[in-house]
Nucleic acid binder design. Structure first.
Length: 297
DNA sequence: GCGACAG
DNA sequence: ATCTTGTCGC
């Protein structure tokens, strides 16, 4: 849980333009392909996990991406809540380890920090990032993967809160949002069955990580003449009702850092436990809420 | 000026 | 995100 890039800290005292250029730098440092350091299949498949838990050959285990200590990957869920006075944010982190067909809570930490700036769409990490980093400092575990409440690559500058913190920690990270910030679903996202997904592709609202420099033409980075919009995330149906009357909206999942969009969606589905939110984020949300109540009382 | 957007 | 009761539909 060491901070590898303190130079990229979400300083709330920066000007808006400085925040945005920092996000462009973060997007250039971000890796939107799989570089997890472990096999993500270990998260979803109890059988693959059981096999990996008792590797016949140590070298084989290393090749398959097993942790050096032979344990299964640690996955952290991160979520924020706000104190009653509205002046402070509370960030909660719950660390899970796959155990059998369920998960074991390895650690829970939280931190409270003052809120410096209001919520501005696109600049969420500058409002909540300080609290998250304070909570990360409290961790004694070293998670292999982080799930954040909010967007990652689905962001105007492809540097949402999951990307910002993931790059700072140089840890694999995923953004799990309940609403779409930008980008376009390639198909309707209504009436999806549990387990289904629809790609979200970039549009003109999303700057490309390449020519993010000085484009005054308004096409903001992508070649409007030859639109080759990349898939920046997925609408993921983590839960659905059977009857036609009641329905659940899909989650909007995107890579934070060192994860592809497809794997990010796979991971979220692997942590679906009958609730809309994946277990790490759901437990972090619950923990944040009752920690907030205790602080208020 | 209007649009328009995570938590 | 947060302030809030009941209420409709699983």
């Amino acid at each position: 849980m060491s901070i590898r890039r303190p130079d990229l800290a979400p300083d709330p005292s920066l000007s808006r333009a400085e925040m945005e250029s920092l996000q462009r730098e973060i997007a250039r440092s971000a890796v939107f392909t799989d570089d997890l350091g472990f096999d993500p299949a270990l998260l979803g498949d109890p059988i693959a996990r059981a096999t990996a838990d008792a590797p016949s050959d140590p070298d084989e285990a290393a090749d398959s991406g097993d942790r050096t200590d032979g344990t299964t990957p640690l996955v952290a869920g991160v979520d924020q809540s706000f104190l009653l006075d509205q002046d402070r944010a509370l960030s909660a982190i719950v660390v899970l380890r796959p155990a059998g067909s369920e998960w074991e809570v390895v650690e829970r930490v939280h931190a409270v920090t003052p809120l410096e700036i209001p919520y501005i769409p696109g600049l969420l990490s500058f409002r909540e990032g300080g609290a998250i980093l304070a909570a990360v400092e409290e961790l004694s575990a070293d998670p292999d993967l982080y799930l954040f409440d909010g967007s990652g690559r689905i962001h105007f500058r492809q540097a949402g809160i999951a990307t910002h913190i993931g790059v700072m920690l140089d840890a694999p990270s995923i953004g799990v949002a309940k609403n779409l910030l930008c980008g376009d679903p390639v198909d309707s996202t209504e009436g999806l069955a549990a387990g289904e997904r629809v790609p979200i592709e970039a549009n003109a609202d999303v700057e490309g990580p390449d020519d993010i420099a000085g484009d005054e033409t308004g096409c903001e980075g992508h070649d409007a003449a030859d639109p080759d919009w990349p898939t920046i995330g997925y609408a993921v149906q983590s839960k659905q009702y059977d009857s036609p009357n009641r329905h659940v909206n899909p989650l909007l999942v995107s890579p934070g850092h060192r994860v592809s969009a497809a794997t990010a969606a796979d991971v979220v589905l692997a942590f679906a436990a009958g609730y809309k939110l994946p277990e790490p984020t759901r437990l972090a949300d619950a923990y944040a809420n009752d920690a907030t109540k205790k602080h208020d009382s």
